[in-house]
Amino acid sequence: MSTPTWTRGAAAVATLTFDVDAETPILAEGRRFAEQPMVMSHQSYGPDVGVPRILDLLDEMSIPATFFVPGWVAEQRPGLAASIVERGHEVAHHSYSHRAPTSLPPGAERADFERAMDVFTAQGIEITGHRAAMWSASLETHSLVREYGLSYDSSLMGDDRPYQVETPHGPVVELPVHWSLDDWEQYAYLPEPRIGSVIESPVKVEEMWRAELDGMRHYRCLFNVCMHPFLTGRPGRMLALRNLIAYAQECGDVTFARCRDVAEWAREDADTPTRLLPAYDIDESVYPH
């Protein structure tokens, strides 16, 4: 087997990604929550406190990152996306409303996708990548991504290395994700709307992510970590992230990169596999619903 070129000689490539969801996941559960200050302040902490803190840490440690921003969030905070790009990081498409594409009626995903693109275009933000809300890509999502000129998606779990997904408009590079590398599963908790049940220790999360990184260094994988500024932006969790970055730097064989750069490396690698989206002929007598 030939050595993959997309890793650029590293044992693993790390993409630190931050989903700047702010209030959108809560509003997607019901606009009535806009009248609940505790809930809304829990979410606004992300862009208002978490993002500046994260940007300072990335500057300090000379790490590039990717921020997936819903169009609604960018629209409500007009300078937010620009402040991220000005620090050398990438802003990527994360829907407009943070409603899962698989929950939307026909035509609504396209309208939501286009509305977010219009926001970023108006703000002069170049967009090359996409992540579906809740990672819930539909069978149409990748086709939309390519139709609108974006080069990659980061929503699926079919590998732990980049691969390409065929669409009617051409291939899209997929940068796969996994629940084990998502801080939502570790830190998220709200009583209403009901989110999570146990808030884990940052020490445990750091240990788990180190173990995943070590495994990915062994198998030459993409360490694609998904974090939310309203979660990881909290002080103790920031120290755990700092420790994780320092550990990866000390390993000496981990490259940190923006998602758009990894997607380009994968596209240039002749050995990057190309796959169709999963398709099944389901027997309704076996699976009626």
Rank of each mutant, 00 (worst) to 15 (best):
T128C: 06
V203R: 12
H142P: 02
V20N: 05
P191C: 00
S197M: 13
I125E: 06
Y219N: 12
D253C: 00
S62N: 15
R220S: 10
M227R: 03
V225H: 06
R32E: 14
L156H: 02
A65N: 02
W179A: 06
V13N: 00
A270Y: 04
G252D: 08
D281G: 09
P176Q: 09
W265C: 04
E200C: 07
R146Y: 06
E126A: 11
H218P: 01
R234I: 13
L241R: 03
E212Q: 14
G233H: 03
G107Q: 00
A188G: 04
V262Q: 06
E35Y: 11
H218A: 15
G9D: 08
A137S: 13
G149T: 08
I195N: 00
D112V: 09
P101I: 03
P288H: 15
P4I: 10
A108T: 11
P64F: 03
D271Q: 14
A270K: 08
V225T: 12
F230P: 04
H93R: 12
P25E: 10
I282A: 05
A116Q: 04
S197A: 15
M238P: 01
L277E: 13
Q186G: 01
S103A: 13
L239T: 15
W184S: 02
P162I: 09
E126T: 11
P4H: 10
H89D: 05
F68R: 05
V286C: 05
A248C: 05
R115N: 06
G196L: 07
Y148N: 11
W209H: 10
T232N: 09
M40T: 02
L139E: 15
A279Y: 12
T121Q: 14
W265R: 09
P193L: 04
L27Q: 11
A34V: 04
D160T: 02
F33E: 01
H228L: 06
A82K: 15
G158N: 12
T274D: 07
M134R: 14
